[in-house]
Each structure stands twice: as C-alpha cells, then as structure tokens.
Design a protein around this nucleic acid. Structure first.
Length: 287
DNA sequence: CGCCCTGTTGGGGA
DNA sequence: ATCCCCAACAGGGC
C-alpha cells in the first residue's frame, strides 16, 4: 500500500467492513476487541482521511476510527498469507482484504462515536499543521512565547504543530540555523520566520522525494530509502555538513536522537542562566 | 551466541 | 510546564 488518498482511499471508500479481526488486544485498548469489532463490522467507509499522523476512517452512522501507525506500522493490501506481525485484518464486501502490520505493536486504533468525540479527540492532541495557511509567523510566535523547553521538543509536540516528526525537526532546524537545544521562547522574530519556512520546506521535501502528497503516509516499500538519501543532517553523524563542512554531531534532545551542525546551528550558552527582569507584557500564553 | 543500545511515536507519572 | 521512562520488537555493534 502506498497512500491514503491516492491508493488506499479509492480501495476502501464506499465499501463495507464485512469482517474485522483484531489479533492484538492492545491495539484498541482500553476497549475490548469485541466492542470495537461490533462497532465497525457492517459499516460502510464514507471516507478515509488524515489528521496529523493519524489515519481517520469515517464510517456510516458517524462512527470513526482514528488509527495511528507509530514507529513500525504499515497497512498492507492483499497481504501474503505468511505475513508476520499482522495485528488487524479487514475483509470488505468486495476488493482485496487489508492487514495492519506492526512488528513493534505501538500502533493504535481509537474508536470514536460521533463527530464531536472525533473533534474532541484531535483538539486535545493536535495543533495546526505547518502547511495550513493559518499557521502564520504570528501564530508560531504566540505559541512559542514564554516557553523554556528546547525548540526541538516544541517541534515534536503535536499539540503545538501537527505532523512534524524527528527527522523533519532535525532537517528544519538545520536549514533554519537553529540549535535544537535553544529555549523555544528565546528565539528572535527572524528565527521564528526562518523556522516556519524551514519546517514547511522539510515537509515538502519529504513529500516530493517520495512522489507523494500531503495525505500520503511514509509506509511505502522501497520509497522510504530514497528519502533518507536526501537528509542533510539526520543520521549523518561524523559526516561533513553539506553547507559548511563541519562534522555533524549527535546528541539527545527531547529524548530523541538529534543531529546537528554546531557551526550552522550555534549551541546555546551553557552554564548558569543570567537572571532576567520580568517582562512587562508577560501575558499568559493561550491555553 | 549473548548483551547492550538504538529507534519513523506518544502517553502517563514524577 | 517539563522531563523521563515506558510500551515491544528487530537489527546492528561488540
């Protein structure tokens, strides 16, 4: 399987889930597998969509399934019977069956009854997507104001902006010339502008490298590798920075392996922090 | 061969 | 608000 809109959606939209087998009880926790199966079987797929890193199955009678593939999940169409790590199997009223395959078993499927429950689920988890036209520099600055967390943690927090993963964060920070450990709230206005541009650039570069669209997932056999070749810093420890030649180093930020050119991305000052007078316009940031 | 570390993610508890 | 660890497995280095 390659994509949501282009391949998977045409395959499943309009079809009825005839039989759903959940082979891994953890997939739909905390609900029981029987509960989820009962809610899904016999319903028609109205639309297969995407929100952030979630794949969203919208079924008849306003029933929704928010599926996340996490690290190692894939959706396979008409899988080999010997396929390992099959966690969910779906048979339709016609067309090939689907298998949700996930060696590491991090993937999840959340049953959401009604559009309100669906929106509440995502409102609690996802911010605007960087490619959303509403994601302006002003929006970014408002989100960043007053935050002390490292900018990399900020980028990875899906509640602030949705859809940016570890690789995109590294690539964007390198392009913007910002060190991943810089405190989010201390970036200049110009850095916010550069960062916004860089995140959008990184997402579009990834999309283009795979010949994909924004609604496509990365779980495509053989396509992921071609994207890796384009990384500027991610997983390039010990290699020279393409821009300045400095050796790329690896560190940990936000609990994730993080790659950086410390010439292009100057580290924040270490040691004690200078005491700062309280700022006048210290309004509490939204939410 | 075994042990240890790492990882395309997100949540819960400290 | 932030940080750390955890989920469960495969693959690579030693």
């Amino acid at each position: 399987m390659e994509t949501i809109r282009r391949q998977l959606a045409p395959l499943v939209e309009g079809r009825t889930l005839e039989r759903v087998r959940i082979l891994d009880a953890r997939w739909c926790r905390p609900l029981a597998t029987s509960e989820v199966i009962d809610a899904l079987e016999g319903r028609r797929v109205e639309r297969l969509g995407r929100r952030g890193k979630y794949l969203v199955w919208s079924l008849s009678e306003d029933v929704h399934l928010a599926q996340h593939l996490r690290m190692t999940g894939t959706v396979l169409c008409d899988p080999d019977p010997r396929q390992t790590h099959v966690r969910v199997r779906i048979d339709f009223d016609g067309g090939p069956p689907l298998a949700i395959v996930d060696p590491r078993r991090f993937g999840t499927g959340e049953l959401l009854l009604g559009g309100e429950a669906l929106d509440a689920f995502f409102d609690a988890r996802l911010g605007l997507e960087p490619l959303d036209e509403r994601f302006t520099v002003e929006h970014l600055r408002a989100l960043a104001r007053g935050r002390s967390a490292p900018i990399k943690a900020f980028l990875l927090d899906q509640r602030r902006m949705a859809g940016v993963g570890n690789i995109y964060a590294d690539e964007a920070l390198h392009r913007a010339g910002i060190h991943p450990l810089r405190p989010t709230g201390r970036l200049s206005a110009e850095q916010h502008e550069r960062l916004r541009e860089a995140v959008i650039w990184a997402l579009q570069a990834g999309i283009e490298a795979r010949g994909a669209t924004i609604d496509d997932f990365r779980h495509v056999d053989g396509v992921w590798g071609s994207f890796q070749d384009r990384f500027q810093v991610h997983r390039r420890e010990g290699e020279p920075c393409a821009r300045c030649g400095t050796t790329i180093v690896k560190l940990v930020a936000a609990g994730r392996g993080t790659y950086v050119c410390e010439t292009c991305q100057p580290p924040p000052q270490k040691g004690r922090v200078k005491p700062r007078a309280a700022r006048r316009d210290d309004r509490s940031p939204r939410r």
